[in-house]
């Protein structure tokens, strides 16, 4: 095993896949000479050349359209959209083109495309147009897989699988996680899409969380452990396909559940997960399903506002305590 940052895990995944398969190439704003705003593709031009590491003009629609066309004709593009917020200017290519091409063709073509975005999440005082968590928008569209890793191990394994996958994948990177560290194997590995990871085993309550929230939940779980309360922490890792079985198995075991996501709670991915639990495991529930997310407000700029906005460890702790009050 070796210790690596989330950022470098992503870099290793792209690099290894570009070495392995020459149909893989990367395109996007500032991915070439500059090497990506977080340094993910630094040195790639020297290694793979300008044909496979393509700097583009500021034209998100052209980037994604080009990637869709290339994916339909034998290549495996990785298209980078700098911040997830910028998908707003090229949404058509995601929701009407990439996602639907295969179905509309009657299942006759493949669209092996990865759309990576750097900028999920708040906590950087980047304000309302550079801080959103938009996973729910994508998981609502049939035909696209939604991947959102929380650790370096998951980031690398899931990205390698996404690049090899024959379907369009949107791979959402959380900007606050880039410099977090974790252990990964020295040797090659991949992680299948649609398999949740149980980040911590416990019997008292199930907490389902994604990306930056996973780390907050794990910290809270430590404090509860000291009190003899064991929290099971589940990271779905991919929202589509969603590993419903792992979630339901855990809920059936604990009977209590909290869902923590950084996105706006209203209409979020947590709402779908909660609905599935209510639908399929209602009789196992010993308490109402808890849900934590951001308020239905654009991400604010000023540090105290932003701090209030992002779900906090304290809020997670209090909510868990309230759920635990319900008797078994």
């Amino acid at each position: 095993m070796k210790e690596i940052t989330y950022r470098d895990a992503i870099r290793e995944a792209i690099q290894e896949e570009m070495e392995r398969d020459e149909t893989v190439f990367i395109m996007g704003e500032d991915v070439g000479v500059y090497g990506n705003i977080f340094g993910i593709t630094k040195g790639f031009i020297e290694k793979f050349g300008k044909e496979r590491v393509r700097d583009t003009p500021l034209s998100e629609t052209a980037i994604l359209g080009c990637a869709v066309g290339a994916a339909m004709t034998g290549l495996r593009p990785i298209a980078e959209i700098m911040y997830v917020d910028f998908t707003g200017v090229c949404f058509d290519q995601i929701i009407n083109q990439a996602a639907k091409m295969r179905f509309m063709s009657g299942g006759k073509i493949k669209v092996p495309l990865v759309i990576r975005t750097n900028g999920m999440g708040a906590g950087f005082q980047a304000a309302a147009q550079h801080s959103q968590c938009l996973e729910a928008l994508f998981m609502h569209i049939p035909g696209i897989k939604v991947v959102l890793p929380s650790t370096p191990y998951d980031a690398k394994g899931l990205l390698k699988t996404s690049i090899r996958d024959d379907d369009p994948v949107i791979y959402l990177e959380h900007k606050l996680l880039y410099f977090t560290k974790g252990l990964i194997p020295e040797e090659e590995y991949t992680i299948p899409l649609g398999i949740a990871d149980i980040k911590r085993i416990g019997d008292d309550i199930t907490v389902i969380a994604t990306q930056a929230m996973i780390h907050k939940v794990l910290k809270v779980a430590e404090t509860f452990a000291k009190k003899g309360i064991e929290i099971e922490v589940i990271d779905p890792r991919t929202l589509y396909p969603l590993d419903v079985r792992t979630i339901l198995d855990s809920v059936k075991k604990t009977g209590k559940v909290l869902i923590v996501t950084e996105e706006c709670k209203f209409g979020g991915s947590g709402a779908e997960i909660a609905a599935i639990i209510a639908e399929k495991a209602f009789n196992h529930l010993k308490a109402p399903i808890g849900r934590i997310g951001a308020p239905n407000i654009p991400v604010p700029f000023s540090p105290p506002l932003e701090e209030f906005y992002i779900p906090s460890e304290r809020k997670i702790e209090e909510t868990i305590q309230n759920i635990l009050k319900h008797s078994n």
Partner: peptide
């Protein structure tokens, strides 16, 4: 590569098959 129900979308996609042939 198909007709398209979204006006103008094909223009961006055509560059992809163009780039694909080039690469």
């Amino acid at each position: 590569l198909g007709a398209n129900g979204i006006v103008g979308a094909g223009i961006a996609i055509a560059n992809g098959s163009g780039l694909s042939a080039k690469l």
